[in-house]
C-alpha cells in the first residue's frame, strides 16, 4: 500500500509539473540482498595454478628410458630425495667457481651424465645451477622432476618454482624415482 501511494504521489507530481524523484527503495533492497551474498563468495587470496605435464610413466614412456633418452638434447632431470636434490643431464653441466663451497656439492661424472648434489633446503643453489644450465642451453625448456615417494607436495612446488623462475624451464613433468 505504501508503495502504491508513492507511485500515485509521483504521478501526481508529474501532472502538477513538479520535479519527480525516483524511488530508490527497491534498489536499496536489491543491494541489501546482493552485498551479503557477494561478501560470502568473495576471496581475497586468489589461488594460482602450476600447469603440469603428465608423469613420464603416465604418458606411456618407459621410466627407465627417462635418464638416457637420446632424442632430448639435454634431458635435464631434477632428482628430489628426502635428503638432497640432484641435477642430472645428458651433457656435462658447466661448473664455475661462483657457487659457494659451503653447500657441500659434489660433481660426479658418469660418462655423459653429470650430477650435482645439493642439500634439500638449498634451493638457492638449485636456482644458480639452473641459471647456468639455461645460459648454456637457451633453447631448452623442459625438465623432469623425479622424486622419492616420501617427498612432500610442498617441496615439489618449491622445486617447480625454482625451475620456472624467469621462465627458464616452464615445461615440467613428473616421474617416479628410478
Amino acid at each position: 500500500m505504501i508503495r502504491r501511494f508513492k507511485i500515485i504521489d509521483l504521478i501526481g507530481k508529474r501532472s502538477n509539473g513538479e520535479g519527480a524523484s525516483v524511488d530508490l527503495v527497491p534498489f536499496l533492497n536489491l543491494f541489501t540482498v546482493l552485498v551479503p551474498f557477494l561478501l560470502t563468495s568473495i576471496v581475497f587470496v586468489q589461488i594460482q595454478f602450476l600447469h603440469l605435464f603428465l608423469p613420464v610413466e603416465a604418458s606411456g614412456l618407459d621410466p627407465a628410458l627417462a635418464s638416457v633418452r637420446e632424442d632430448v638434447p639435454l634431458n635435464l632431470i631434477i632428482r628430489v630425495s628426502s635428503e638432497a636434490i640432484r641435477l642430472e643431464a645428458n651433457h656435462p653441466i658447466k661448473h664455475n667457481g661462483s657457487i659457494p663451497r659451503t653447500h657441500a656439492e659434489k660433481l660426479v661424472s658418469q660418462g655423459m651424465i653429470v650430477q650435482q648434489i645439493m642439500s634439500l633446503e638449498d634451493f638457492s643453489t638449485l636456482v644458480t645451477h639452473l641459471t647456468e644450465i639455461k645460459e648454456d642451453y637457451p633453447n631448452e625448456y623442459a625438465v623432469t622432476i623425479m622424486a622419492e615417494d616420501n617427498v612432500t607436495y610442498n617441496t615439489l612446488i618449491t622445486v617447480m618454482d625454482c625451475a620456472r623462475l624467469d621462465n627458464r624451464f616452464p615445461v615440467i613433468s613428473f616421474s617416479k624415482w628410478e
Binding site: A58, A147, D149, N150, V151, T152, Y153, N154, L156, F174
Partner: peptide
C-alpha cells in the same frame, strides 16, 4: 593438494 601430501600419493592421483 595439502602441502603435506607425499609424492607417491600425488602420482597415484595424477595417473
Amino acid at each position: 593438494g595439502d602441502e603435506s601430501l607425499t609424492f607417491i600419493d600425488m602420482l597415484k592421483v595424477m595417473r
